[in-house]
């Protein structure tokens, strides 16, 4: 029995209701992420040219994140790296979601199919995630394709598990039985009755998969199993900067690392706020 909670409206967004506030947060965060992707595409060129005249500069107005040992602007490099990370994350979580939907529907088709899906989920969850990504990535010959496929192929199990449980629960509903009694086919029921309930879950799951995929890509790259050193990936930037940390060039690792953290948290924030909107419990606050 819960007591009535009084929501206090204060701080930055005073006067807005919960739904407006949530949408504002989602909107501004999405804009930030979109900005990173767009600018990473259009930036580049000159600031990324090797320029030994301005190497190892500390952060300044001209170079907000400093420059590296080859005189490249770290701000632009970081943006490029983040843009690439988001693209890789996006691609990977989209592929994972497609796999989830296919496996989820497969699990609803019959008993054997369901135990197969559940076995597959258990199998993937029992191997350490990072190890699995490295194995697949190396097996596919490494490089960008290897990493993307590896990351995409390993992020579906937990969402699939959620979707499968949801389908199971939905199938016991009276209105599903009634639909069958009204002569509707299995396929019709799956697409008209079950799918509408899964869409929000899947959407949310996809967004929350993003940060995972990004972090995994960065770690694998950092460890040297991922993207090639020519790519301006965050993982590469971080692993290179390790060599210069002892020389006192702290900004080489600090700003890229911080930016990565911000991007990951931004995705989390979008996911969390979307979840709030979809939750019927506080839908009317």
């Amino acid at each position: 029995m819960s007591t009535a909670v009084v929501t206090v409206n204060r701080g930055l967004f005073r006067g807005l209701n919960l739904r407006q506030k949530t949408l504002l947060i989602i909107g501004s965060t999405s804009l930030l992420l979109l900005g990173i992707v767009v600018s990473s595409v259009f930036l580049g060129g000159e600031p990324l040219q090797t320029n030994f005249g301005s190497k190892n500069l500390a952060p300044s107005l001209e170079h907000p994140f400093g420059t590296d040992w080859m005189g490249r602007d770290m701000f632009v490099r970081t943006l490029e790296g983040l843009g690439l990370s988001i693209l890789v994350g996006g691609l990977a979580s989209t592929i994972s979601t497609v796999l989830t939907v296919i496996l989820g529907l497969l699990s609803s088709a019959g008993k054997t199919a369901d135990s197969f899906v559940s076995w597959l989920v258990d199998l993937f969850l029992s191997i350490p995630h990072l190890l699995l990504i490295i194995l697949i990535s190396i097996g596919l010959g490494g490089g960008a394709t290897g990493v993307i496929i590896a990351v995409a192929l390993t992020h579906w199990p937990s969402l699939t598990r959620v979707v499968r449980a949801e389908i199971k629960q939905l199938k016991t509903q009276e209105y599903i039985h009634i639909s069958r009694n009204l002569g509707k086919s299995k396929w019709w029921i799956a697409s008209k009755h079950i799918l509408p309930h899964l869409v929000p879950q899947i959407l949310l799951g996809t967004i929350l998969m993003f940060p995972h995929a990004i972090l995994h890509e960065a770690s694998v790259t950092f460890l040297g199993f991922g993207l090639s050193p020519h790519e301006p990936a965050i993982g590469i930037i971080l692993s290179e900067s390790m060599r210069y940390l002892s020389a006192g060039y702290w900004w080489l690792a600090f700003f890229p690392g911080l930016s990565l953290l911000i991007v990951v948290l931004a995705f989390d924030m979008i996911g969390e706020n979307l979840g709030k909107l979809m939750n019927p419990k506080n839908a009317h606050e």
Binding site: Q173, E174, Y175
Partner: peptide
């Protein structure tokens, strides 16, 4: 219970 016999969506 008719509430259970209709799809809420």
């Amino acid at each position: 219970h008719p509430e259970k016999a209709v799809n809420p969506k």
